[in-house]
Simulated scan of single mutants.
Amino acid sequence: MEQIPLYQHIVNALTAKIESGELQAGDQLPTEAEISKEYNVSRITSKRALTELENAKLIYRIQGKGSFVSADTTPQPSVNKASKEILLILPFAHNPGLGDYEKGINEYLATTDYTLNIQSNTIVGQRKLLESALQSANSGLIFYPVSSISDLGILYQYHLAKYPLVTMDKSIEGIPFLSVVSDNFGGGYQACQHLIENNHKKIAFISSLKVENSSSIRERYFGYLKALYDYNLIDYSVSDLTDRYLTHNNDREYYIQFVQSVMTQGITGIVAENDLIAIEIIQVAKELGLSVPDDFSVVGFDNIDLANFVEPKLTTISQNFEQMGYEAARNLIALIENPHKYPREDAVVPVQLIERQTVKKL
């Protein structure tokens, strides 16, 4: 027998009572707390069940009084705008070069009858958006998490409720959501290998976050380490700077100290977590009277639009954001339409090295 979401069990049970006449027009339904106790589920699950019944026009709610059986108890078709809408939660309102996520998602959704709703956590906050989305009538969620370890409690509620969710860019620690990511390991390896092939021996990795907190950064770092291992080189990352400076919200001081440490240690190559950090390092180097790539070389990650306009133009690893969005939408719709048959395999999108002007051959 196929397993169905917990909230759907409640929906089915209450619908049967309404259709059989056990619950008649105007009758008050149990409260969220009472449903939670009767069915041994969370308040979020009971609220989701009542929301589904309300969307189907089987019940109506009066604030402060409760939920009641509608006069017209003929179930409405479940296929409506609310139930055919996909929510995308992003950690940024606008990030140059990353808008292709939306383009890829909409390209796939155009082949279906689903539509896209986009929300950014820059104002409301990730947790509040997640709490709201779980109680909404959206069919599913494409989620770009701020880190791999944030808001695990509410995300685990999604897992328990079997809510269709696909993460993008990162995976969530300890929760088996489907994810769509770039080949971060391969990208970190390619970036480091490119520096090695240009005769760099002392190569450092720099990140704005601890590698433990983000699966994508961690994979890039591991790829960098694997390249060093394969070529019998040593890791020159200045990891202690992250704790000393970024934890005090002094990013500028962090980058200054990093560049100074690079020069002190004779490091000639840098693999940056992303393009924005790589560009920041280039600007700091100029302010310190240094030159990229003459004093040291830099490889970024993302290939944002700005990477091709800074001076010197940034060598970087290109992610296919449009393809990631497309795969995320394809996987989510398949999960919604066939939740018990769809194979739970994460999608890994290939990356590409883009050679420009920030790597010097020694």
Rank of each mutant, 00 (worst) to 15 (best):
G125A: 03
G66S: 05
N274C: 12
L50Y: 00
T268R: 04
Y245S: 06
K17S: 07
F296W: 14
E52C: 04
Y221Q: 01
I172L: 00
D100N: 12
K47H: 13
Q28V: 15
V299F: 02
F177S: 01
A227H: 04
V284N: 04
S182A: 15
N40I: 08
F185M: 08
Q352P: 06
G266A: 14
L116R: 03
D100E: 15
A13T: 06
N106E: 13
I86P: 03
Y245L: 04
L225E: 03
E253K: 14
L233M: 07
A329Q: 10
K201I: 08
T73M: 10
E38K: 14
A347R: 12
I203Q: 00
T358I: 12
A278F: 02
L129T: 02
D169T: 10
K170L: 13
E22A: 06
S239C: 06
D230E: 15
S179T: 13
K341H: 15
N117P: 03
E253W: 07
V348C: 09
N338C: 11
E287I: 02
N308A: 09
T316G: 02
Q126W: 08
D251L: 06
K84V: 08
Q157A: 11
Q157E: 15
L29G: 00
G187M: 07
Y236C: 10
V166K: 05
Q24T: 11
P96H: 04
S239R: 08
Y229H: 09
F92M: 02
V11Y: 04
A272K: 00
C192G: 11
L53D: 00
E345V: 11
I4E: 13
N249S: 14
S42K: 07
S132K: 13
P91I: 02
T74A: 12
S20R: 01
A347Y: 11
E253Q: 15
S318D: 03
L233T: 04
L362N: 14
G325P: 06
L241W: 00
N95G: 06
A307W: 08
S46G: 12
T115W: 02
Y229K: 09
L116P: 07
G266P: 14
I18L: 12
I277C: 01
S70C: 11
N250P: 03
K360I: 14
N338E: 15
L50C: 07
I217G: 00
P293F: 00
M263C: 09
D183A: 03
N184S: 10
Q283R: 15
Q319A: 14
H94D: 06
I282F: 01
I149D: 02
S120P: 06
D243I: 02
I149F: 03
V124Q: 09
V298E: 03
S171P: 02
Y231M: 11
I333F: 04
